[in-house]
Write a protein that binds this DNA or RNA. Structure first.
Lengths: 193, 193
DNA sequence: CATACTATTTACCGATCGGTACAGAAACGA
DNA sequence: TCGTTTCTGTACCGATCGGTAAATAGTATG
């Protein structure tokens, strides 16, 4: 019988994809074994905590991706304006132009939110905070920066919901364009509102 | 043994609440019987189609509520401006100021979306259409009206996600305020953008 | 080549899943 | 009052759920 030695970390992206596609309850161990290619034995060898640990690992990797690809650039970039543009590019790519769903957002709506409360909250709090930081450094006054950041994150999540509901991924790209130009306008000397 | 004769329609609000709270997969028949107070026998008497029919009925009642309370007023009101204000009031009330989740939105993110595709799509399509109609009649030029309507619905859904993720219902009310004033500004003679 | 450790397969567990069958109780119509 | 219909409780079904145990196979170390 074939024996392909796998690593724990190799399985995590597949796990994230399965949870994204089926939700936490909907992702049964049989579908997980199928999509990851790992048998129950291997799965429980790598994740002794079962489904919960698998989901935690998936959330962790997603968070890590956003931290390095989005949050840290927003916080540390020399040019906050281009960091913001990069954010929209990264986000569009990550969510496959609206045809992929946000696992964290889906968990937030689900009743399993309580089990992953800290990870779910941190993801959104960090996103809002990092974006507000970039806006502030780009010259946006403090309170407006926080409001604009919140508005942007809200728009991204809402666009994912509506795009998927209507089967129209374009909703996502349209929304991204709209909020991006609103952000850039707000930090272009003239104030919004 | 006690015998309280129930009606099918009495069960539907409870069903909607259960699905909202636990999701489609997460709402087991045992929790459904518990929360509705109906035994399996009654449940399958009223909904021979099982869980799927229960969920369809729940979605149907939600849609009906929105049609009569929100969509029709938006389409038919003599004063579209106040109809729009009424919409925000109704929506805030319905979602309990952000502490209640949108079942249709949750279904849209879930993999069960495919099973209820038509109902999910119609809900959002009708909402956008009705709001755009009110905006147009309020003097907003056609293409802008559609974009503003979409932006508003997106914001509502996103706000529900983020509010629940952050455990901060205020996000929802803030978002409602923001988009409402943006809509009113857009139809107050001066054009937006 | 022996050993130890890591991965993987396989069989199995009790619990719960959604759903069915059916008998009996309550309400209704005559 | 007596059927008939409408509703409900209960027992039961096979399937699948998440999870465990342990024997085995592969790899690395010596």
């Amino acid at each position: 019988m074939p024996k392909i030695v796998a690593e724990r970390s190799d399985a995590i992206p597949s796990l994230a994809e399965v949870f994204r596609e089926y939700g936490f309850e909907g992702a049964s161990l049989s579908t997980i074994t199928e999509k990851t290619g790992l048998g129950k034995g291997s799965l429980y060898h790598f994740f002794p905590g079962g489904k919960e640990e698998m989901a935690t690992a998936a959330l962790g990797e997603i968070d890590e991706w956003f931290v390095t690809q989005v949050f840290e650039p927003l916080r540390n970039a020399d040019d906050p304006r281009s960091a913001i543009s990069d954010m929209f590019r990264s986000v569009s790519r990550y969510f496959r132009s609206g045809s992929r769903v946000c696992l964290v957002g889906a968990f937030a709506l689900d009743n399993v939110r309580d089990r992953f409360r800290a990870q779910v909250r941190d993801y959104f709090a960090e996103w809002c905070g990092a974006l507000a930081s970039a806006l502030t450094r780009a010259g946006c006054p403090e309170p407006d920066a926080a409001a604009l950041a919140e508005e942007t994150v809200v728009a991204v999540q809402g666009a994912l919901v509506v795009a998927r509901a209507l089967d129209e991924p374009e909703v996502f790209e349209r929304t991204l364009q709209r909020v991006q130009s609103r952000l850039l306008a707000a930090i272009s000397g003239e104030e919004q509102r």
